[in-house]
Every structure is written in C-alpha cells, then in structure tokens.
Design a protein around this nucleic acid. Structure first.
Lengths: 244, 244
DNA sequence: GAGTGGTCTAGACCACCAA
DNA sequence: TGGTGGTCTAGACCACTCA
C-alpha cells in the first residue's frame, strides 16, 4: 500500500525502513555475520513494496553496515573480512608488499577518563575506563605504539587474556565477545617527535618523527565507543588514503 | 525496449549508459558546472527507461562526478563548491575554526620528469613537466610547503600569472582554464623531519616533524594528471579523515 | 504551470546459490 | 528446483524551482 506523505517523520519511506532495520541491528536481533531477512520479508514486515525495502538495504550496504551477496542473502557486516581490515588499518608497506601482522600487549589496566578523552567518548570526566597499551609489529618489526581507551561499562570483561585471543584485532574481539560493532571512525593525523617512552619501545632515538593517528570509533547509533592513539614509524610504511 | 542480456559488453545496461555519459564528459560535451541532459533526455537518447538512466546518474553522483539538484537538473561537479574543497584539503585547524587561506608562489619552471614521478604520472622519464613550488598560508601563517609537478603537454599555458588568478586553488584553474577536472586522488602520508629548505621557508628549526602528504590526482578516465608533495606543519592543524 | 529530480509501486526476467 | 539479490521497465505522484 502507498502510504501518505504526512508520516510521523518527514522522511522518505525507505529511510524510515532503514532506521527500523538499524534499530533491530542495535538491539542485536541479528549478530555480526548473520543473515538478516530478505527484501521480500522486510517488505511484508513493514508493509511496503520490495523496491522500497531494497532501497533501505542498498543504503545500509553503501555504508558498510550490511553486505549483500547475490543468491545468498544480506548479512550483517563483520570485521573478519579482509576488505574491512584495510578500511580501518590504512598503514601499508611502502613497497606494497603484504606483511605478517603481530601484536604485543604492554599493559591493560582500569583507570579514570581524562577530561579531553571523556569528552570525545561522550562520558563524564573521571568515569571508569580501560586503558590499554600495545605494540603492533609488521613483519616482526615494531611499527605502531597504540594506546586504547574504552569506557569500562560496555566493555566490562576486557582483559589481557581476551585481547590475546584475537591476534590483535580489537574490533573482532568487540564483535565476538561483546556484540559491539564499529561502523565508522574519525581520525586526526599529525606529525610528532617520539617521546622517551615511544622511542624506547619502538627502538628509535627520541625526537624521531612519528605519524600520530588519533581515532574515535563509533557504533551503529553514532555513539563513540573507543578512543585510540597510534604512534607510527613511517620509514617503510605509508598511511594510504583515497580521496573521492 | 528491453535489451537482451547478450550485449557487446557483459555489463548491466545502466553501467553501459554510465560509461557513455562518462565518455561525453571526457570529450567535453559539457563543461564543469554546466547542466547535463535530464533523465528523460538520456533515456530517449540511449533508448532505455528513465529508471535505467537514473541509476547511471545516481552512480555518477555517488562518485562525485555530477551533482543532482532537485527541480533544477544534474550538473557537472566543480571544485568551486565548499564541499569539494574540504574533500581534497583535509588539513583543518585543531580548534575547528575557519581560516583565511592564502598562497604564495615561490617558483614555476619547466623541467624534466624524474623517474619515480614519471612512473606515477604514467609518462616517460625525462619528458617535459612544469615544476611549481608554493607556500600555503592559513590565517597568514605559512603551514604547507607544496611542490607540484604537471605533465607539460596537457598543462601547456600554466604560468605564474595564471596561478595567481585563482587564489591558490590549482584545481579551479585546471577546470576553468584547461577543462581538466580532477575526480579522485590517492594520498600517501608519512612523518618526516624538515630539511633545510622547508625549515627556512616555514620558519622552523631543521628536523622539526612535518606531515608529508604525497598526492597523485586523476581525471575522469583514471588518468593521473598531477603529482604533489605537501610538507605540513601540524602544530595547530590536523589531517582529518573519516573512515566508513 | 511546466520541467526537473525524488519517491514508491508492481511486475518481469536474469544470475547466482544451495539443497 | 526454489529462493536470493540484481536489473529493467512503466507509470504514478510528490517536492522543488523558475519563468
């Protein structure tokens, strides 16, 4: 049936459908990697035509929220796929070669949120957070020194042991263990000189230029969930970015 | 009419239409900023339904090749728009404030392409290029030292005077004066220490960490047209990137 | 009011996949 | 073989813009 335009929300129908599907994703109706209902099923559930359900799903696919596979169905996107890893880890070897990735956890403690970070995570300054430091190794060479801050409440249960299980992919762990999926992030890049700690951990002279990447990651409802600062040695690596 | 699937190219119809429209863009049938034919006109021209022409235009719009304006028409995208500037100039003030942009041309000479750059521009090493150096000022403070290399042939006529006319937006000049529109770019970011030249021009001590941005820009047919290296002082500025 | 792009529907056929 | 997403069509109405 054709709905009148004077709907509760002044949104096209397909966007309302998209919002409803997003709500179901937030509520966890389908976990990461699972198939979601077909176009026809959504059309029936919401009383719209298949084309309208399709357009809602197409937009979710364009935002990398879901993945469509011809002949199989539509699936909740996952950080398992190679594609997704490249979307979030932009540092690549200068010569383009593939590399073995490894990581070394340095520490993982409970702490209190500093004001600046609390603001970016949209939590109260001083509230409980989990504070992680780790080293990322490319082909067995330490390249990135990461500092990760997580709000303690949704991430309750994040411990050194848990982190170790996922070969350094924090996002895979959030998904698998906590059902928290990051769908987008905002990065701020700056050049900086290595401080004493970074220099010693990366095996450099203090003051060596490093690429500093500050990242805030968001879940479905644009809620910030993770703050991260990576200090990267860029002698043999580039941060690759496609502008379109 | 419904065309059989066994078309010359194994592409969906709307992609074939898209390719045809792209060809017309390359040939310069419509200049930057101009209106292109309506959906109905394309449908008639290519003998397809309006919906198919629409899907072709939608994809071109998604790639920022054209801009759609309800009630007015579809237009060839331009680097005039504020949106587009932000798409290519990612350096923003740390406090988020808007800034006055200015530029100072340092030199503009004819030269020969070095091997590495020639390869990226897909031209022969040693072929004629235009070699430009300039300083970009944010709020009257020098922030970026740019080096720009252009193949001499398509960019014949690029001179110091011409560059001055466009308030530093090279892309606007390429469009307006030469009909060359950049549609995408690839950037490689690295942290480096200021060499003597950069240090003196930016008013820094040699060795100061700088964000190095190497960019290759492409026109419609994915043809590389410009090589650029920017050395950026990131004390009060960030390179902002949205990952989706 | 005429023309444009935006939304929505309904129905057809195709390509792919799994059982 | 039946179900999925992918393509294509045709026609309707809406919202916006401009003369």
């Amino acid at each position: 049936m054709n709905k009148p335009r004077a709907s509760p929300l002044f949104q096209p129908l397909y966007r309302q459908i998209k919002a409803l599907i997003t709500q179901s994703l937030i509520s966890g109706e389908w976990g990461p990697g699972e198939a979601i209902p077909s176009e026809m099923e959504f059309a029936a559930r919401f009383g719209v035509s298949q084309g309208t359900a399709r357009k809602a799903l197409d937009e979710l696919a364009a935002e990398n929220i879901v993945v469509r596979r011809q002949g199989k169905g539509t699936f909740v996107a996952t950080h398992e796929e190679e594609m997704v890893k490249l979307r979030f880890l932009r540092l690549v070897a200068a010569d383009g070669s593939k590399e073995l990735l490894d990581n070394k956890l340095l520490c993982c403690v409970r702490s209190k949120a500093a004001a600046g970070i609390a603001k970016m995570l949209n939590i109260r300054a001083g509230s409980a957070v989990i504070d992680i430091k780790r080293l990322l190794l490319f082909s067995n060479k330490p390249i990135i020194l990461d500092r990760i801050i997580l709000p303690a409440v949704p991430f309750k249960g994040v411990t050194s042991e848990r982190i170790g299980d996922f070969n350094g992919s924090m996002y895979r762990m959030y998904e698998t263990r906590l059902g928290i999926r990051m769908v987008r992030a905002e990065e701020r890049l700056v050049a900086t000189g290595a401080d004493v700690e970074a220099a010693s951990l990366l095996g450099l002279a203090p003051g060596t230029p490093l690429l500093s990447i500050e990242r805030v990651s968001y879940t479905y409802d644009d809620k910030p969930m993770e703050w991260r600062l990576g200090l990267c040695l860029t002698d043999d690596h580039h941060y690759l970015n496609h502008l379109e």
